[in-house]
Amino acid sequence: MATTTADSKPASPSGRPSKSYANLLRELAITDYKIKYQGSFLGGYIWTIAKPLLIFGVLYLVFTRFVRFGNGVPNYAVNLLLGIVLWTYFSDATVRAMASIVERGDLIRKVYFPRMIIVIATSLSSLITLAFNLIVVAVFVIFSGVGLQLTAPLFVLLVLELYALTLGSSFLLAALYVKFRDFKHIWELGLQLLFYASPIIYPLSFVPSRYQALFALNPIAQIIQDSRRVLISPTTLTPLDVIHSPLVVVPYAIPIVVLVVGYLYFESAASQFAEEI
């Protein structure tokens, strides 16, 4: 028997097996992925790969032909592509997840299911995109003469860390966006700043050495640098190289803190979504 009172969380339609929510999660994620590229001429797979490649192409041209600062960096192209792919995942997934609760208002007002399924589904559908993009990165890594590193399997852990950071941010943003639509603009601005504050188009070694530790506290910077280290070059600077204090745990801890805080805030706000949207 499920009982609902003013204080309890809404009773889930009692007895509904959690397996059915896993199924719902999968269907919503697939739908989300299909809808993203709905009606596109080239089809979803092409656009999935084309978007980061186009950004990469433009940035590569600018920084190796016009500004020419990429020329002195070993494996600049592969490093740039990897950075862009990881960044694109974080920025696309959070932007899309932020609006996901509001966009699914119809569903939320009419059916009960754990609301976080919607946010998780959006983040998973972006993960499909990331997987396709990583295949392109792998092809680049292999054919650019970098070769596969022995440390490559560690990259899986970094993807998990990136996913935790993305999901936590998504929970926070999706719940805040229900109350304040300003977050759309705030987050766009925040992403712009974060993009330039992270070593995506430039390597961390270009940052004056007394600021490197500060830059490395940013978990995006840490994930990108660690990924470059395990996939491309063992000489890439990582937080372990530039932060010489216990503070080195900060970038690794932030994703976990964001996930926990995001989840708790989302859950506390979720029971009101149906009335607030």
Binding site: T3, A6, P10, A11, K110, Y112
Partner: peptide, 10 residues
């Protein structure tokens, strides 16, 4: 379970 009661029990 879509809305929560203000008071009372279901």
């Amino acid at each position: 379970g879509i809305y929560r009661p203000t008071s009372g029990r279901v």
